[in-house]
């Protein structure tokens, strides 16, 4: 008996990292999963992992979450192939081009980060919520970041994730009466492709925070929290901003900022 039996879930950015781990965890618990990712190769990889390991219903869609047409097509495809979604995980996110010095941030970079990280969750919620209302309720989980609630080194990314936290609370307020819950998870340092990319590019030479749990989180550890918030075990939880940062203490300011 899976914890998400008969549920239909959309996971954006499901082709890698936290999104992939979440899609796999959902499938393991019996959910049908739509993997929406701009990187269709990654989405296909997650799909084949699900088919091999669990054999549960799964679909993929090449989605640019910043584009209304693309999101609408993805939602329609979900309904057509899997059925009405009652779980939405807004996980797709980027930090590409963001800088440790705000005055160096290209306005186009700022716009693209806001478009994917904040407009994306808005659009996905906008087109999924009517389906959830028709189904009698649902659960939305937004992957924000510890950067949204603590001292944050990168401004464009932090601002977008701060927006996600505010969006979460507003949606929780608006749709609580319709049995739609909306919560955010704020991960700290997670070992993902995004993190490896940041290290490889030399943006961060050392871990950017000191945490009580002295290692990066595995994507599976975030996925377990997403599962909790997606399932009925969290039926009385909405508008929460769940800090999953290993007990972060402080930023290593001296070591990461330029002289």
């Amino acid at each position: 008996m899976g914890r998400l039996d008969t549920r239909i879930a959309i996971v954006t950015g499901g082709g890698s990292g936290i999104g992939q781990a979440t899609a796999l965890r959902f499938a393991e618990e019996g959910a049908s999963v739509m993997i929406a990712d701009i990187n269709i190769t990654g989405a296909a990889e997650t799909r084949s992992m699900i088919e091999t390991r669990f054999g549960t219903p799964v679909a993929i869609h090449q989605t640019d979450v910043s584009q209304p047409d693309s999101v609408q097509a993805m939602v329609a495809e979900t309904v057509r192939v899997l059925g009405t979604p009652t779980i939405l995980v807004n996980n797709a996110g980027i930090a590409t081009g963001d800088s440790l010095q705000l005055h160096e941030v290209d306005p186009a970079v700022w716009d693209r980060i806001q478009a994917v990280n904040l407009r994306g969750p808005f659009l996905c919620c906008k087109y999924v919520i009517p389906r959830m209302m028709a189904a009698g309720g649902g659960s939305i989980i937004n992957i924000a970041s510890a950067a949204a609630v603590g001292m944050a080194p990168r401004a464009a990314y932090a601002a977008s994730k701060g927006g996600v936290v505010a969006l979460t609370r507003s949606i929780a307020f608006q749709y609580g009466g319709k049995n739609i819950r909306c919560n955010a998870i704020c991960p700290g340092a997670v070992e993902t492709a995004l993190a490896r990319q940041a290290r490889a590019s030399g943006t961060y030479k050392v871990p950017i925070v000191e945490a009580l749990i002295q290692r990066r989180a595995e994507p599976e550890e975030i996925a377990n929290a997403v599962l909790f918030l997606a399932s009925d075990e969290s039926a009385f939880i909405t508008s929460d901003v769940l800090l999953l940062d290993g007990g972060a203490l402080r930023l290593r300011k001296e070591e990461i900022l330029p002289d």
Binding site: L212, L227, F228, G246, G247
Partner: peptide, 15 residues
């Protein structure tokens, strides 16, 4: 399942 969570607070308050 909450292995990376410590010093956190989880409100269960219906929003």
């Amino acid at each position: 399942e909450s292995s990376y969570m410590t010093a956190s607070n989880l409100p269960v308050d219906g929003g």
